[in-house]
């Protein structure tokens, strides 16, 4: 962007006003009424997708703060994604890194991420047709987390947040969830716990089941056979819910997904 051509300088000034019409002057030779159309179109287009996905935040902070927040996003955030449908992803990125801007409740990031998962998971790229099966898993089986199962850990109780539940400090216990989309494209959240998410993290890191259970047994200072028995029961429950799949079945999943999905809170 260093060596802009003269016509590109005109474009840059043009866009700078659209991003921030209250603070950046319009190009001098253009009727303000005409620039206002662009500023309005861009704002409305961005606001409409964000308002749809993050309606919960808008309800809590009110219209004025919401408008100031979208303005701040337009002013300061560089949207890298060419996909309009990923503006909510970009907004999460903005929330995570913003400095200044309208002040928000401490749970805003968690609330928005949880809302984003509800929006993004139904649209996420499919698993291969043969990824899911019903045969029980054993200790020797190679397993993987389905790309349509998202283990989630939140500081705030995201399922309870709303106008009547606005905690100023997080509870002692984190909230553990698994968002899933099964083979029938039914989506939902299941309540989970720290231990299950630890197991899923080990599986995602490529650790075989036997080694994962041994590691967890060591972390908990429990006998390995007991952890294995309990762990296999969990693994098979998650397999039946299409959260865990056979690793061989997920080979080549990456080929279907040409754009990455941000999904860590």
């Amino acid at each position: 962007m260093a060596n802009l051509r003269p016509f590109q300088r005109l474009q840059k000034d043009f866009a700078a006003h659209i991003r921030d019409p209250d603070r950046v002057a319009p190009p001098p030779d253009i009727e303000p009424r005409r620039m206002a159309i662009y500023a309005r179109l861009v704002y409305n287009n961005v606001e409409s997708v964000l308002a749809g996905v993050f309606a919960g935040l808008q309800e809590i902070v009110g219209k004025a703060t919401w408008r100031a927040l979208v303005r701040d996003f337009l002013r300061r955030h560089t949207v890298d994604s060419p996909y309009y449908s990923e503006l909510p992803d970009e907004f999460l990125g903005y929330l995570a890194t913003r400095e200044g801007g309208p002040s928000l409740p401490p749970f805003a990031t968690d609330l928005c991420h949880y809302a984003w998962v509800k929006y993004a998971l139904p649209l996420a790229p499919d698993m291969p047709d043969d990824a899911f099966d019903d045969d029980p898993l054993d200790l020797d089986d190679q397993v993987a987390v389905s790309s349509l199962a998202w283990p989630l850990q939140y500081t705030f109780p995201v399922t309870d947040l709303g106008p009547d539940c606005q905690p100023s400090t997080p509870p002692d216990e984190a909230t553990y969830l698994i968002a899933y989309r099964n083979r029938h494209d039914e989506t939902g959240f299941m309540a989970s716990n720290a231990l299950t998410l630890r197991l899923l993290a080990l599986v995602e890191a490529g650790s075989p089941l036997a080694r994962s259970f041994a590691e967890i047994a060591a972390e908990l200072a429990r006998p390995v056979p007991r952890v294995q028995a309990a762990g296999l029961a969990i693994v098979n429950r998650l397999h039946a819910q299409d959260v865990l799949v056979r690793a061989t079945a997920t080979d080549g999943v990456a080929g279907g997904a040409s754009r990455p999905k941000r999904r860590s809170p």
């Binding site: 043009f14 866009a15 662009y38 861009v42 560089t78």
Partner: peptide
């Protein structure tokens, strides 16, 4: 401009 504005500018 430096990022996507998701609208058409001249």
């Amino acid at each position: 401009d430096h990022g996507h504005l998701h609208d058409l500018m001249p």
